[in-house]
Design a protein around this nucleic acid. Structure first.
Lengths: 214, 214
DNA sequence: ACCTGAACACCGTTCAAGT
DNA sequence: ACCTGAACACCGTTCAAGT
């Protein structure tokens, strides 16, 4: 779809019989991410990603054990991106404004989901990691969760939050952000475009933060 | 699964060349639900469901437009089941104990998800209804949501809840229950078995209900 | 070391043909 | 009216063979 600037059929995307030079692994990942974004997470196909890169579909198996392994990396990169976005959105806020910062965290989480719905679905749809394969996916998730735990911990230390366990309160926040994101992707947040859906998050999440306050 | 009372292999399930007598539509739905439960939602296959019933796979198309249509009915029946479970779990509680009833509602929602993880995934994974097909799926969802809205409405009337919009507070509760269920299915609720995961819901959801109180 | 080509055992969907 | 059988255009995965 992308490289057909001429009437060239997909089989000429690979330049005259030579190998794919450079980082095929990276190229496949980018193609996969792009396809998932355009066609949706369930329609994604290994063969189409290979076609897009201009390589035989079997070549993908040199770099990924199977389709699930590829998707696990896509998911992992999503969690890294979410963590980055959370850091960005919290960056301007003073460390003492814990409630504001938690709101920003939730907003970053939901914002990523609304901007990258299919990618988010890959991250949280299939039980990619049910058998403990993909430890680096686990680490990426932990990376994002750590931001949340740190925030709640400081909130407790500053006496801004209830006297409950840090992990429990963190789960309450994650639950709210994740639930909102999921329901939004399912079209259950009846607030038109994603801009308004992002704004409505504040309304829905306000009682949750209120309930967490001391 | 249903009619294999003996050790009969799948291909002999259809009695000697005759048509499937009775409700093939219902039989396919039951087979689909069973397969989804056993093999997981993404591994589910039209052809395998047909095989299980003992019918040619093309016969399924007499009763369902396509695979998505079949899954939409499975999803719909899931929402009907959830609504029933919610009614059951709230049945013993007095109408004035709105907070208790909301807790029971959330617990029923999460309980269904934990007991039927693959079924729940079908209900909320793929964007089955993105294009407004399947209006009866929409109705089934609305049926469950109505139970929630009624509860919040009564809570407001009794002066037990904040003075906020009914729909907004209902979304807060749904968001919490749905987020908890989703995270639990993803293995992010670190509380061993599903029995303990159900109990931990109370801990996570307590601040939310507290935040909704007047 | 990395990729190709062909093969295998599956899919979902369609359609003429049977009863 | 309802189902079968064969066909079509796809999949994911494997493996000998090429460079």
């Amino acid at each position: 779809m992308t490289e057909k600037t001429e009437k060239t059929p997909a089989r000429r995307a690979k330049p005259r019989g030579t190998y794919h030079h450079g980082d095929l692994r990276r190229a496949v990942l980018d193609a996969a991410t792009a396809l998932i974004r355009e066609r949706g997470s369930e329609a994604f196909t290994l063969r189409e990603a290979a076609r897009l890169v201009g390589v035989d579909h079997a070549a993908v198996y040199r770099h990924f054990e199977d389709k699930r392994a590829l998707l696990a990396v896509v998911a992992e990169e999503g969690f890294v991106a979410i963590a980055g976005r959370i850091r960005d959105e919290m960056a301007g806020l003073p460390e003492t404004s814990v409630l504001e910062r938690l709101k920003a965290l939730a907003s970053a989480y939901v914002g990523f989901a609304l901007d990258n719905p299919a990618h988010f679905r890959v991250m949280l749809g299939p039980r990619l990691n049910e058998d403990g394969r993909f430890p680096s996916l686990e680490s990426a998730i932990e990376g994002a969760v750590t931001l949340l735990l740190d925030e709640v911990r400081r909130g407790r230390r500053l006496g801004l939050l209830r006297d409950a366990r840090t992990r429990d309160m963190a789960m309450t926040v994650w639950t709210a952000a994740h639930g909102y994101a999921s329901l939004a992707l399912l079209g259950r947040i009846k607030h038109g475009d994603s801009v308004r859906a992002a704004a409505y998050l504040e309304v829905v999440v306000a009682p949750v933060l209120a309930g967490l306050q001391r």
